[in-house]
């Protein structure tokens, strides 16, 4: 790690790293991308169990009433297969956005 002895001291604000108050410029834009990705991640992964907990009480007739995808209840397919694809897509979109952000800031420098 680089030592900074002899360098011009920075103000408290210059040294600030805070996920909830990101520095203007690259970091702020990076944090916006992170927030969007995390929101898309959290809503999908925790939204389904919360929805199921609210709407499903156990009864034999419940499964006859739900919609089916690939031979299983749609919520089952959503959790077993779709969400993994969704995670792959989120990684893909995050990388595309970060690549774009990084290259635009490197050009400016």
């Amino acid at each position: 790690m680089s030592q900074t002895n002899g360098q011009k001291p920075l103000s408290r604000e210059d040294l600030r790293i805070n996920f909830f108050r990101p520095r203007p410029g690259f970091m702020r834009r990076e944090v916006i991308i992170i927030w969007i990705t995390l929101a898309a991640w959290a809503i999908m992964i925790f939204g389904m169990p919360v929805y199921l907990a609210i709407t499903y009480s156990y009864s034999a007739s419940t499964l006859a009433e739900v919609s089916y995808t690939f031979g299983v209840p749609s919520y089952f397919w959503f959790s077993s297969q779709f969400l993994i694809l969704w995670f792959v897509f989120l990684c893909f979109s995050f990388n595309v956005l970060i690549d774009w952000l990084s290259s635009s800031y490197r050009k400016r420098r």
Binding site: T4, L10, L15
Partner: peptide, 8 residues
Amino acid sequence: EHLRRFLV
């Protein structure tokens, strides 16, 4: 400070 500067 050198740690915080490194982070930035």
